[in-house]
Structures are given as C-alpha cells and as structure tokens.
C-alpha cells in the first residue's frame, strides 16, 4: 500500500522535532570536521565524500590522523571496526524494529549511528507507520552530518559565531533519552549496568580505549543476569 501524504508529513514532522538536537550537535561537529580536514590539506570534496561514504562521526576524526601518516589501509580498517564496535549492540537492539522494512532496510542499517539508535529506541513514534518515522530520523541525521561537513569545508575559519560548547547538545540528548528510559521500571537495571560498566571500562582501561572493554562487561552482566532481566 502506498503511504498517504498525510502520514508521511506526520512522520517527517515528528522526526524533525526529535532530531533538532542532532541538527545542532552535528552542525557544530561536522563543521569542525570540515575545518580540520582543510587544515590537513583535504578540501571540501574530500571531507564531504568521507562523511557521505563512511558516515561514522568520531571515527572520521580518528581517520584524519590516518590520512596524515604513511598509507596503511589495513590499519584503517581494523581501527574502524574497533572504534565502531558499539554498532553491533545497536543492530541487536533494532533487529525487531527493522525487521519488515523492505527496501529502506539497507539504508537504515547503513546510517545507524549513536544518535539515530538513541532516538529510534528512546522515542515513541507518532501516530503513523513507525517505519516512516525511523526512515526520516535516519535520513535527517545523515543529511545534517554531510551538510555540516560541507559547511565546514566551504567556510573554513570564516565562522564568526563562537560555537564552543555547542556539541554539548548531543550529551544533553543522550541524558534526556536516558531519563526517558529510566521512566519504565524494567529499563532501570540495564541502564545502571550500562553506566557502571562504562565507568569500570574507563577506570580499568583508560579513557582513550575504544568502548570494547565496557561492551564486554555489559554483555557479561546482561547475559549473567538474563533470568532476572528477561523473565
């Protein structure tokens, strides 16, 4: 059945409202990324291409270093698997939600980032087919990142407005979505496990490690507590 225009509008509107914090954060970070790439001699075409093809936020900042040292694609590949390992857990979390997506599915998996995952899992979709909502959230977040990169690559250091601290919008978004998770009783224990495991991972393995130690701890505790968590 072809989606009604009204239903699509509703989904787009809800997706836009829910992604405004991402628009804010990605504009700031995407611009910073475009500027950083420029200072290393990579023009706007390269930074936009990187954002559009790889679309992996923090890993792209790591990759700036890879572009300035000796050519080593194997290291680049392995590093991005490790830095992005958390996506494995996002995939497992949305397996059920993304089950019957049809043609959109590959695009939604391709663009499954921290922010999209948090909104898809943390926000109640509006009164429409939830799949349209997921689609627009993914598409808008992707667009914000690519557009932010373009802006940074074009403007370079010309921006007069002091944007320091603007990326806190993403931290605030995660805090709000965590609070929303805490509203329902059954999510409280998993949320605490996540916080404690992340803190333990940082204390034990240092703040510069990718999230892998924290993920292993989370997995062990969740599986160990399966009987209590999923009765």
């Amino acid at each position: 059945m072809a989606p009604g225009k009204k239903e699509l509008n509703k989904a787009l509107k809800a997706a836009f409202v829910n992604t405004i914090p991402v628009l804010t954060g990605f504009s700031a970070l995407g611009t910073a990324y475009g500027i950083l790439m420029r200072t290393k001699g990579y023009g706007v075409l390269w930074s936009v291409l990187f954002s559009a093809v790889a679309f992996c936020g923090s890993m792209q900042f790591v990759a700036v270093t890879l572009l300035t040292v000796a050519f080593d694609p194997v290291q680049a590949f392995l590093l991005s698997v490790m830095v992005n390992a958390r996506h494995l857990f996002y995939g497992v979390s949305v397996l059920e939600k993304y089950k019957d997506l049809g043609r959109m599915k590959a695009f939604l998996i391709y663009t499954l980032c921290d922010e999209t995952f948090s909104i898809v899992c943390g926000v109640e979709p509006p009164d429409c087919n939830p799949e349209y909502f997921y689609f627009f959230v993914s598409a808008l977040n992707y667009l914000y990142w690519v557009a932010g990169t373009f802006l940074g690559g074009m403007l370079g250091g010309l921006i007069a407005f002091n944007t320091e601290g603007l990326d806190f919008a993403l931290t605030a978004l995660f805090v709000v979505l965590l609070l929303e998770q805490l509203k329902s009783q059954e999510n409280r224990l998993p949320a605490l496990i996540g916080i404690a495991s992340a803190a333990a991972g940082i204390l034990l393995f240092g703040r510069n490690n990718p999230v892998i130690p924290a993920m292993v701890i989370i997995l062990a505790v969740l599986i160990g507590g399966k009987k209590k968590l999923c009765p």
């Binding site: 857990f89 998770q181 969740l222």
Partner: peptide
Amino acid sequence: CLGKTLPAAMMGL
C-alpha cells in the same frame, strides 16, 4: 533478551 536490555544499557554508556 539483549535486544530488550541493550538500549537502556547503551544509553547509559
């Protein structure tokens, strides 16, 4: 089970 519990845990992380 992980699909149900991971979202809250990863939000905390």
